[in-house]
Every structure is written in C-alpha cells, then in structure tokens.
C-alpha cells in the first residue's frame, strides 16, 4: 500500500496536480505572512527583554517560556473563541478564513521569535554595546549594532518560527475549518486525506511538507554554521 501510494503520489507531484499545488501555495502564503507578523511582534519584545533591565523581567521571561509550550489546540480554541460570531473580534468575520490561521500561528510563533531573540541578545559580548556607545552612535544605532552582531541568531529565530508555523496542524484545523481552496493547508489536508483513505494524496502532500521542512532545516544549519564562524 505504501509503495503504491508513493508511486501515485510522485505521479501527482510530477504532473503538477493543481489540488496539491494549490494547497502547498496556501500553506506557504500562510506561513510567510504569519512568520513575518510574528517576528515583527516577537523580535522587538525579545530584544527589549534581552537588553534592558526592568522590574518583572524575570516574570516576562517565565511567561515567554511558558508560551513556548502552549498546546496548539488550546491556541486554536482561544483564537476560535475570539473570532467566533459572539466573541470580542467576531465582527471582523475572520473565522474560517486563512487570516484566522495566520492569527493563530502568530500566537504560536511570536513567543518563539521573542524567546530566541532574547537568548541571542542576552548572551552577547557586553563590549558590543559599549563599543557602539563610545563610537558616538545614537541609541537606535546602538540597537542596530547589537542586532547586526547577532544577525545569524535572529535569522535562525525567523527560520525556526517559519518551520513551526508550516508544520502546525491543530490550531489551523480549528480556526481554519479545513475548507477546500480556502483554508486547507498541507498539514490539515494530510490529516483529512489520511482519514478518508486517500493515501496517495496524503503522501504527495507529506512529501511537499517534508521538502519544505528539509529546506528550512538546511537553511537553519547554514545560518548556525555562519553564526559560529562569525563568533570564532
């Protein structure tokens, strides 16, 4: 059954099956938009927690680390309750649209981006900030110099967030509803195809997902290698 499924899956991929390509395109779009927005929120938060000393900083770090372990179905449920017709954001009419999936993925990925950013800037050589200061850089350029110094770690945070969003299934299923051509992503489609016994489609989609995950990991490996070389 596996060999047969694999053969038919490859045929689907090589033929450029519109169903498979459509699902992959939507998944990538959701992942890119969610990652971008999650990093726009998470990276500055992580930067602030990692570079400034303020009351409650320890608590902020604990909350952040707890959010890393948030069950995805719970996030899906919370976002569903927010976006449901009777919920506080029900008027936006976003439930069961791809924007709803984006919103849920932001809740999942922003803490990852924030935590990895905080860890990167916390561990930075204190001379980096001091050097930028004594060279007469204004405050925003001092931040820029710190970010530049940990650029590979920051890029890793982006890539890890992207990987997390791409592979997530629980929240996407709950808030997206797995609607064909609208909110059906690679992961939710694999789940549905498997439950319907359409193994060739499930395997084909799984292979696309695997290829994307592999690309992300190779990218991450390369970035970490460059980061290590830069730090040496």
């Amino acid at each position: 059954m596996l060999a047969d499924g694999l053969r038919r899956a490859l045929t689907l991929l090589l033929r450029g099956d519109p169903e498979v390509l459509g699902i992959a395109a939507l998944s990538i779009r959701v992942a890119l938009v969610a990652t971008l927005l999650a990093c726009l929120i998470g990276v500055p938060i992580g930067f602030a927690i990692g570079t400034t000393r303020f009351r409650g900083r320890r608590t902020a770090l604990t909350v952040l680390n707890t959010m890393l372990a948030f069950p995805t179905v719970l996030v899906g449920l919370l976002v569903w309750l927010l976006l449901a017709r009777s919920g506080p954001l029900g008027g936006l009419g976003l439930l069961y649209t791809w924007w709803a999936i984006v919103l849920a993925e932001i809740v999942l990925a922003a803490p990852i981006a924030a935590a990895l950013t905080a860890a990167a800037v916390q561990g930075i050589d204190p001379r980096v900030r001091r050097t930028a200061l004594t060279l007469g850089a204004p405050a925003w350029r001092v931040h820029w110099v710190v970010a530049r110094e940990v650029r590979f770690a920051l890029l890793s945070a982006v890539v890890v967030s992207f990987g997390r969003v791409l592979a997530e299934v629980g929240a996407a299923m709950i808030v997206g509803g797995n609607i064909r051509h609208q909110t059906r992503t690679l992961t939710t489609a694999v789940a549905l195809a498997t439950s319907q016994g359409d193994f060739s489609l499930a395997i084909a989609l799984g292979l696309v997902l695997l290829a994307l995950a592999l690309t992300v990991n190779v990218l991450l490996h390369m970035l970490q290698g460059r980061g290590d070389a830069g730090a040496a």
């Binding site: 050589d125 001379r127 980096v128 001091r130 050097t131 200061l133 004594t134 007469g136 530049r148």
Partner: peptide
C-alpha cells in the same frame, strides 16, 4: 560620547 572616545583594554572590532 562624541567628544570623548574610549579604547578598551581588549577592544572589540566588528566582524
């Protein structure tokens, strides 16, 4: 800081 510049004992040069 623009009038005074410090060179540290183990100065940091950027990558």
């Amino acid at each position: 800081r623009r009038a005074v510049t410090l060179v540290e004992q183990h100065p940091l040069l950027f990558d």
